[in-house]
Design a protein around this nucleic acid. Structure first.
Length: 444
RNA sequence: GCAGCAGUAGCUCAGUUGGUUAGAGCACUAGUUUGUGGAACUAGGGGUCGGUGGUUCGAAUCCACCCUGCUGUACCA
């Protein structure tokens, strides 16, 4: 095929980037339209911020990140580092700080946008993906946090999920904070390592997590991960405290009350969820699907959550003296699409055109006439785009899954009666032009 | 990043202890049917066997390094 490979551009995609095809995009569109409806009902503003930000605007307040290209795609422009956004929360904080005096307080906005992460992709995880974010900025009220959970639940149900197919897991950073105080862990690095370990309970189980809290753990491939080096008494206390299935912190008790007011019960207290590490300050939540998700080979994969969020009361404050406590939720739309396509036979209709076959170039006027009639009746229709034998045209129509072809050759044109061939049944009918629309509507 | 495994046609793979012109199925192209697709049959195109270097009379097969992919793990703001 290619005799001289040299100098030909590569047809491969960069690591972690993919082409997305119509079926997936239609499901995504369906989800997005549901999101927009719900967002309007809940009174959120629609916002869009640019893909690029100054690196320090979205990163400098994050500890232990001194290089701008750590995890993000960056380049230097006129001596300033620019980065592709890695989430929609950091740009929101920047936006709020920039427009602080003009915007309402509280400020509610939602945003749909592509984000990029320069890290290793996994099943259903890419380096470019679409995120949906809804945030409340400028309120400490847990009513806001509660509404986000109720709202995401409503979106998922609109998308066709049953209540039994997903759950909102909820916890609070205050639990682990108090716990660390109790067992006297004050070293920040040790706290972080311990938090990261606890975040893995779902995947590794308590045994694995305890190893990570202690000296460390060897994985399947034999690779060793260093642990948090806590004493076995501390680990025992952590396990005991976190296995209690009742929440005691004031913020959780309050939000559960609010859930009750909403008659919302599809949540579960789970002290093992940690979510991100740096900026959450209070209530945190995670949206989990309860059915198995498989990869291309049919193996069940570790899918994790499709999104989550929580309270971050200090983020906007990093830009200056703004009192802007906030709470927000992020959903990875591509992951949701990936899961939904498997779970439901989505009745997202891929509309394919009726193909009008071309017999004579000289009759093009007649073909266009038919095409216009169909298109005016809102029926997708096309004149075969090319010059081929009828057989080729039929093969084309079949390949694109066209519901029917119209055969309008010399004889038909003379009598003014095109032939309509149903491509799934193979049946043909020669009919008056004025009946064409009705006959086709019976087929599609 | 670390670790394990893998890389042969567009796709899924076969290729025996290194031995002549590297195979199959699907897909593709053309024809059997010059106004008829999805089935069948016939013929055909397409691979420097991931790359580079080495061992050898001879390498898809052995060795080294690199690249890419998969899985686990770490990081994921």
């Amino acid at each position: 095929m290619t005799k001289d490979k040299i100098n030909k551009p590569s047809k491969e995609l960069p690591l972690g980037f993919i082409d997305r095809q119509e079926k997936e995009l239609l499901v995504r569109d369906f989800i997005i339209s549901n999101i927009k409806e719900v967002m309007i009902n809940y009174g959120f503003q629609y916002l869009e911020t640019p893909s690029f930000e100054y690196s320090d605007s979205i990163g400098k307040f994050l500890p232990d990140k001194d290089r701008p290209d750590e995890g993000v795609f960056s380049f230097k422009d006129e001596n300033k580092w620019l980065s592709l956004r890695y989430d929609l929360t950091a740009p929101l904080a920047r936006y709020v700080a920039k427009n602080y005096l003009e915007i309402s307080k509280p400020f509610k906005r939602y945003q749909l946008g592509t984000v990029w992460r320069n890290e290793k992709p996994g099943p259903g995880r890419y380096r470019e993906f679409l995120q949906f974010d809804a945030d409340y900025v400028g309120t400490k009220s847990l009513q806001a946090d509660a509404e986000l959970c109720v709202m995401i639940s409503e979106i998922l149900q609109k998308c066709g999920l049953e209540k039994s197919e997903y759950i909102i897991k909820i916890s609070s950073r205050k639990i682990t904070e108090e716990l660390f105080k109790k067992i006297n862990v004050i070293d920040n690095q040790q706290k972080l390592t311990a938090l990261r370990a606890l975040d893995k309970i779902e995947r590794l189980g308590w045994e694995g997590v305890k190893q990570l809290l202690g000296s460390g753990r060897k994985d399947q491939s034999g690779d060793f991960t260093k642990g948090a080096n806590l004493s076995s008494e501390c680990i025992a206390t952590i396990e005991k405290e976190l296995k209690k299935k009742s929440a005691k912190t004031s913020d959780l008790l309050e939000i559960f009350k609010i859930f009750n007011n909403y008659n919302f019960s599809n949540f579960e207290f789970d002290p093992s969820i940690i979510r991100g590490l740096e900026y959450y300050t209070g209530v945190i939540f995670e949206v989990n699907l309860k059915f198995d998700v498989k990869n291309k080979k049919g193996q069940i994969i570790q899918f994790g959550s499709i999104g989550g969020g929580g309270r971050y009361d200090n983020l906007v404050n990093n830009f200056g003296n703004y009192d802007a406590p906030a709470t927000g939720i992020s959903i990875g739309l591509d992951r949701l699409v990936y899961a939904l396509i498997q779970k439901k036979e989505f009745k997202v209709k891929q509309i394919r055109p009726i193909v009008i076959c071309v017999f004579e170039k000289n009759s093009m006027k007649d073909y266009i006439k038919l095409q216009t009639i169909l298109r005016e009746a809102d029926i997708s229709a096309e004149i075969y785009p090319g010059e081929s034998k009828l057989k080729k045209q039929m093969e084309y129509a079949n390949k694109i899954k066209s519901p029917a072809v119209i055969l309008y050759g010399e004889d038909e044109i003379k009598s003014g009666k095109p032939t309509l061939r149903n491509l799934s049944s193979g049946k043909e009918k020669t009919i008056e032009i004025k009946e064409l629309v009705n006959e086709i509507k019976k087929i599609i």
